[in-house]
């Protein structure tokens, strides 16, 4: 499946209206906001259709996955938006992650727990709120809101340490930028180690943490709770380093411009577990026969040439690199 899918579901009491934008969406937040009611309404509509008294509008079939036989049921669900409520512990299993990776469904998962087996985006974690308006006389209108907002710093930050999630091309790039400057670039050795690395960092001054937002969803809660209490740490979470290059305009290509405007329409969930993987593939394909030939493991030094690195840096707002 690809694309953005609008879902409207309502009964006489409540109405929900939201867009599902990529393969994995997480819903969390306060109790009593209507998460379980939403999943129950999706399930009841699937079982009984309009005779349930529920009205559901979506261009894809909406299903609920639950219970001990979840894997057998999931094998039969294709090209659908699958909702899972928080009381299903299979969502943390390796088997579930494998089936999500290999399927062409989109998934909407209610959980407050970070799911490290699933590469979901920091931008696709939502809470539900009642907007205060009423869709009908007695019908409370519910909508999604982003749990984790924009991380761009309000004021210009001059880092003393730049912490990069891994040691691939992104690390090489930021390390290259630091040549002759007063900050140090270190690798956390994996996104799951960033939390510990921040705690153990004994260097003075501000830290800029750079990670791939497209697959950082499982980490964002503990990191943002830690960062939120410290003024010396700033997060920079582009979709991925490859996205940053593609978005910078270094490559001139009309098709690319179209893709970057609305990637959702081009990223097939069965082929790409996360957007990060898609953008890596896209960049490698688009540069394979050129001087910009990109490799994930080691940076082609051409990306550090002044004109090119400057264009990439322009999209890193309010951070002095």
């Amino acid at each position: 499946m690809n694309g953005i899918h609008k879902i409207t579901v309502s009964n006489s009491s409540v109405k929900y209206e939201f867009d599902i934008k990529r393969n994995i969406t997480i819903i969390k937040g306060d109790s009593a906001t209507g998460k379980t009611t939403l999943v129950e309404m999706i399930g009841e509509y699937y079982e009984s259709g309009e005779s349930s008294g529920i009205n559901l509008v979506c261009d894809k079939s909406c299903r609920v996955l639950a219970g001990r036989d979840w894997s057998t049921l999931l094998l039969t669900i294709k090209d659908s938006i699958v909702f899972i409520d928080e009381d299903n512990d299979f969502m943390i299993s390796d088997d579930f992650a494998r089936m999500v990776r290999d399927s062409d469904n989109y998934y909407v998962i209610v959980t407050r727990e970070g799911l490290p087996n699933l590469p979901y985006s920091v931008d696709e974690i939502y809470g539900i709120r009642s907007s205060g308006k009423y869709a009908g006389l007695f019908q409370a209108y519910h909508e999604f809101y982003h749990i984790y907002g924009d991380h761009t710093p309000d004021e210009r930050v001059i880092p003393h340490t730049v912490m990069v999630e891994d040691s691939n091309s992104g690390y090489d790039f930021f390390k290259g930028l630091s040549d002759g400057k007063d900050y140090e670039v270190i690798s956390a050795g994996g996104k799951s180690k960033i939390f510990t690395e921040i705690l153990e960092n004994k260097r003075d001054g501000s830290i800029v943490v750079i990670a791939d937002g497209a697959a950082f969803g499982a980490e964002i809660d503990r990191i943002s709770k830690l960062v939120g209490r410290r003024r010396d740490i700033v997060l920079f979470l582009p979709e991925s380093f490859e996205w940053l290059i593609l978005y910078s305009g270094v490559l001139k290509n009309r098709e690319l411009e179209k893709i970057m405007k609305r990637p959702n329409d081009h990223i097939e969930s069965r082929d790409y577990f996360s957007w990060e993987r898609y953008f890596t593939h896209l960049l490698m394909e688009m540069t394979k026969d050129s001087y910009l030939k990109y490799s994930k493991n080691r940076l082609n030094p051409v990306y550090l040439h002044d004109g090119i690195s400057q264009r990439i840096r322009e999209n890193i707002r309010n951070i002095e690199l």
Partner: peptide, 14 residues
Amino acid sequence: SMDEMIPVAGMFVR
């Protein structure tokens, strides 16, 4: 306090 709790809790959960 949360200042004390977060560094400890974050070692065990995400």
